[in-house]
């Protein structure tokens, strides 16, 4: 695998889109969290809305793990887009064919892409850890690993987003269409998720059947639903602070969807004409 990754590195290290999107993502993670940090520090903390709100700092330890994970989650489309570009480029320029002709097996080709998707997720997560630690220390609170589980939820979300990008790229093959479809799917699934959540509430009110937040059972929302912004004290008074109603169901589904994306991408690549 090390050899395969070295070859992948040869392919991307001089690719401008790779450098730009990577830099954009890294800087973006810090900036988006700084924006939320600054808004909370300068606006909410000085608000006249009440002492409860003013005492709430989402970047204090241990809130920082949850806040940074949740906020950075919005930027996960960037590594996903990069993955789509890298894979669809191989189809566009037929370099995937050349790799196979030169002696790679189809399995080696698709597995190294899957490994890259996992590496992107790991790097994104490390970035979250660093950023969360930085803002936590900046907030002046004592270091704590409480609620570090949210970093794990972020990792799962990153894995799902990246693996879904690999699948879309392998299925669609054209960069523009693949990126377009990726975003259309995200939007459509969000809409469906809202509809399912409303249906869940109606069902519960109608005959007491509790199926949880059914919207979170959809692929991207399963990974997404685990991540929430820390509830401020006012909000906590009014709702349950658990990220989802059925934590283990949702986390199991998120893992199952990830495996499905891996198996589907691999099967498609192994059997299709290139």
């Amino acid at each position: 695998m090390n050899k395969l990754l070295k070859i992948e590195w040869l392919k991307v290290k001089n690719y401008t889109a790779f450098k730009l999107l990577s830099i954009f993502f890294c800087v973006g993670v810090v900036l988006i969290n700084y924006a939320v940090y600054a808004i909370n520090k300068n606006i909410l903390a000085n608000s006249t809305g009440g002492k409860l709100l003013a005492s709430f700092n989402p970047y204090n330890f241990s809130n920082t793990w949850q806040s940074t994970s949740y906020t950075t989650g919005f930027l996960l489309v960037l590594p996903a887009m990069l993955l789509i570009i890298l894979i669809t480029n191989e189809y566009t320029f037929k370099t995937n064919r050349q790799n196979i002709i030169d002696g790679w097996s189809r399995n080696e080709f698709i597995m190294v892409k899957i490994i890259i998707a996992i590496i992107f997720a790991i790097i994104s997560t490390l970035l979250v850890v660093l950023t969360a630690t930085g803002f936590g220390l900046l907030s002046g609170s004592d270091f704590s690993l409480n609620q570090f589980s949210h970093v794990g939820f972020f990792f799962l979300k990153a894995l799902t987003y990246n693996m879904f990008a690999v699948l879309i790229a392998v299925l669609i093959k054209k960069t523009g269409f693949a990126i377009g479809l990726y975003f259309i799917y995200l939007g459509t699934e969000n809409f469906l998720s809202q509809m399912l959540d409303i249906a869940s509430i109606k069902l519960k009110n109608y005959n007491g059947t509790d199926l949880g937040s059914m919207g979170d059972y959809l692929p991207m929302n399963a990974a997404d639903g685990l991540l929430t912004f820390p509830d401020n004290p006012l909000k906590s008074l009014t709702r349950n602070i658990l990220p989802t109603d059925y934590f283990w169901v949702v986390i199991s589904l998120a893992i199952a969807y990830f495996i499905l994306f891996v198996v589907w991408s691999r099967k498609k690549y192994l059997n299709a004409d290139l």
Partner: peptide, 15 residues
């Protein structure tokens, strides 16, 4: 079929 943004020598290194 080669990486369009890479030089001849880098493409050959990949092969």
């Amino acid at each position: 079929n080669f990486y369009h943004y890479l030089s001849a020598v880098r493409n050959l290194k990949i092969s």
